[in-house]
């Protein structure tokens, strides 16, 4: 039963690329993998999952109580199908971080968090201390491995596959103690931070919610996602789902441009995997310049309009 089960993440409409990144991790382990899609009206999502290169079977579990991503319900369903798998992988997104430890505990195993590299099926690497140390983690040989995959470390697989989709009804019952109320989405139509090729971020120096429009305008001009430092979110300049860093999103775009972000280690953790890091900050001694590939010590309120003009 050396086989991996991947927990698909989706928003009810489309499959999150985190699923394909988990699949890449499964292939690094060297195993065949199946994908489970839990939700309500899951056909379309299952079809998208079936296109991931190398997918074995896509198991589509359609049930009203699985419609919303409640860990209590999703964990019971996964545990019910865990027998045939040596490895169960989910993404290191908030969905996976919420769900996977519940699965691990129900199966009586510790969880490997944030796999960033695979040595073999029981030997992984992962960052700790906000990415300031990388450790080798060994799961007991032959034990069931439950893990989250650090999505910023893995590229999605191709989507030319044509796996079989097997529909089944839920094996678990709804838990009555947890009820979904709603989701208030902060972001608009901009690319998702965790998959965007470019990300433009603003920090405390943006100084107001209104000034953040500069970030959005530049982001829209080049088709980038819009991010922020914790300081900017705490100050109420922008919604929480824009936060990049140890406790926000860990991202790996090809291009990351930080405007008015000083560069606390917690923020750097979130951007270290970016291809090119650009920092624009009035303070030439800001720590962000230590990790930037290209730095510009200048006032962002001058630079952004100039960039808009040059790129427009």
């Amino acid at each position: 039963m050396n086989r991996t089960l991947i927990i698909a993440e989706h928003d009810g409409t489309s499959l999150n690329p985190s699923t394909s990144k988990c699949a890449r991790c499964a292939t690094a382990i060297g195993q065949d993998f199946d994908i489970v899609v839990m939700g309500s009206s899951t056909n379309e999502i299952a079809t998208q999952a079936a296109a991931i290169d190398g997918a074995g079977t896509v198991i589509s579990v359609d049930a009203e109580h699985l419609a919303n991503p409640l860990a209590a319900n999703h964990a019971s369903e996964v545990v019910a199908m865990a027998d045939g798998y040596s490895h169960i992988l989910g993404p290191s997104t908030t969905y996976g971080r919420d769900l996977m430890p519940r699965i691990a505990a129900l199966l009586g195993v510790n969880q490997v968090s944030d796999i960033s590299a695979v040595e073999d099926g029981y030997h992984f690497k992962r960052p700790i201390y906000a990415g300031n140390a990388i450790v080798d983690v060994h799961a007991p040989e032959g034990s069931k491995v439950v893990a989250t995959v650090r999505v910023a470390s893995w590229k999605a697989l191709g989507d030319g596959g044509n796996a079989a989709v097997e529909s089944k009804s839920a094996s678990s019952a709804a838990s009555s103690h947890t009820r979904y109320v709603n989701l208030e989405s902060g972001g608009g139509e901009r690319p998702d931070l965790q998959t965007a090729t470019s990300v433009i971020s603003g920090g405390r120096a943006m100084a107001s919610k209104e000034n953040f429009d500069l970030i959005y305008e530049l982001a829209d001009l080049i088709g980038a996602g819009a991010g922020a430092s914790r300081a900017a979110v705490d100050a109420g300049y922008c919604p929480n789902d824009m936060q990049v860093g140890q406790t926000g999103k860990i991202i790996s775009p090809d291009l990351y441009i930080a405007f008015g972000i000083s560069g606390a280690i917690q923020h750097i953790t979130g951007i270290k995997d970016a291809g090119t890091i650009v920092a624009v900050n009035k303070d030439a001694d800001a720590p962000i310049f230590e990790v930037a590939d290209i730095g510009l010590a200048a006032d962002l309120f001058t630079v952004i309009p100039e960039m808009k003009q040059l790129l427009g």
């Binding site: 989405s185 902060g186 972001g187």
Partner: peptide, 13 residues
């Protein structure tokens, strides 16, 4: 709850 997609509200017993 602070989730990747925004703010999710749930009710628990």
């Amino acid at each position: 709850r602070e989730v990747d997609a925004g703010l999710e509200t749930i009710e628990v017993d």
